[in-house]
C-alpha cells in the first residue's frame, strides 16, 4: 500500500437539511493513514460533512446528500450499500463522550458482537484488550472492566469511545471535536492517541482549535459558510497540507481565520 493512496474521495458533494444547503459543492480526497482536519467557524458545515462520510445523516429527517463519495472506489451512497457495513469500515467518535450505560467491557464488546467478529469468548476478550490498549486505556481500567463505563472521567470516557470504535476494526475513524469537552491534560492524551492511531487508521477530525489542527493533522480543510450569492461555489475554501494552510494560505478568508481574525 503506497503512502499516498486515496482512501475516500468526495466529488461535488451537497448536503441539504429540508432543502437548505448546509454543504455546497465540496470535493476532496482523504488520504490513507493520514490525519485530515476540518476547521472553520461554527455552523459552517464541518460536522455535516463529516457525518456525510459514513451516512450518519441518514437518520436525520429531511437530510439529503447529492454528489459522489467513495470509499476505496465504492460509492457509499449506492442503493445497495448497507450502512451497517459502511459504518463498520468508517467509524465515528462524537463530540461529547457517550459511553453506553453498561460495563467498560460491554462498551467495547458491543461492536464486535453486532458484527460477529469473534467465535469464542477468549477471542472477544482479546479484541477488548487490544482495543483498550490501542486507545491507551488498558492500564487504567484493566482491573475494573466490569464497572460501568459512565463511571470514568471525561477523558477516559472519550478514550473508551475510541476503543469502542477501533474494536470493530475500521479503516477510517471520524472524530467530531473529540476533545472539545475535555480539560487540557485529557486533550493532550487524545491528541497523542490520534498520532498513534494514524499509523493504522485513516483519521478525519473536526476541530475548532487551530493549534490542535496544527499539532495532529497532516492535511487541513478550511470550511466557511459562504452566502449563496457569492462567486465561490463551495463551502470548502481551501484544502492542503496543514503547514501550507497555516503558514501560507492562498485564500484571504483562510488567512484571516487562521490568524484569529474571526470565528
Amino acid at each position: 500500500m503506497s503512502e499516498d493512496q486515496v482512501r475516500m474521495s468526495c466529488r461535488n458533494v451537497n448536503v441539504a437539511y429540508s432543502g437548505n444547503l448546509a454543504i455546497k459543492n465540496v470535493s476532496m480526497d482523504i488520504m490513507s493513514k493520514k490525519v485530515t482536519a476540518f476547521i472553520g467557524p461554527s455552523g459552517c458545515g464541518k460536522s455535516t460533512f463529516l457525518r456525510a462520510l459514513n451516512r450518519m445523516n441518514d437518520t436525520v429527517d429531511g437530510c439529503e446528500v447529492t454528489g459522489e463519495i467513495t470509499l476505496d472506489g465504492n460509492d457509499i451512497y449506492a442503493k445497495d450499500m448497507d450502512t451497517v457495513f459502511l459504518r463498520q469500515w468508517v467509524g465515528m467518535v462524537f463530540q461529547k463522550p457517550n459511553p453506553f450505560p453498561k460495563s467498560i467491557y460491554e462498551n467495547v464488546a458491543y461492536g464486535p458482537r453486532i458484527h460477529g467478529l469473534f467465535r469464542t469468548k477468549s477471542e472477544l476478550d482479546d479484541i477488548v484488550e487490544q482495543s483498550l490498549i490501542g486507545a491507551g486505556l488498558w492500564d487504567e481500567v484493566k482491573d475494573r472492566l466490569r464497572n460501568p463505563g459512565t463511571g470514568l472521567s471525561g477523558g477516559q470516557q472519550q478514550r473508551l469511545c475510541i476503543a469502542r470504535a477501533i474494536a470493530v476494526n475500521p479503516e477510517v475513524i471520524l472524530m467530531d471535536e473529540p476533545a472539545s469537552a475535555l480539560d487540557p491534560i485529557a486533550t493532550r492524551k487524545i491528541e497523542e492517541l490520534i498520532h498513534k492511531l494514524a499509523q493504522n487508521y485513516t483519521i478525519v477530525i473536526v476541530t475548532h482549535s487551530m493549534a490542535q489542527a496544527q499539532r495532529v493533522a497532516d492535511k487541513t480543510a478550511f470550511f466557511y459558510a459562504v452566502p449563496l450569492t457569492e462567486q465561490d461555489n463551495s463551502n470548502l475554501i481551501e484544502f492542503g497540507d496543514t503547514k501550507q494552510i497555516f503558514d501560507n494560505p492562498v485564500d484571504d478568508r483562510t488567512r484571516q481565520y487562521v490568524e484569529g481574525a474571526f470565528g
Binding site: 437518520t59 459502511l86 459504518r87 463498520q88 462524537f94 457517550n98 459511553p99 450505560p101
Partner: peptide, 26 residues
Amino acid sequence: PGSYREAALGLGASRQQAMWSFVLPS
C-alpha cells in the same frame, strides 16, 4: 438520551439493534 442511539449507529448498529440493545432497556 439520543447519544446512546447515535453511538450505536456510529458503530454500525442498525436502528433496530440500537433500539433493542440500548434505548428500550434504558
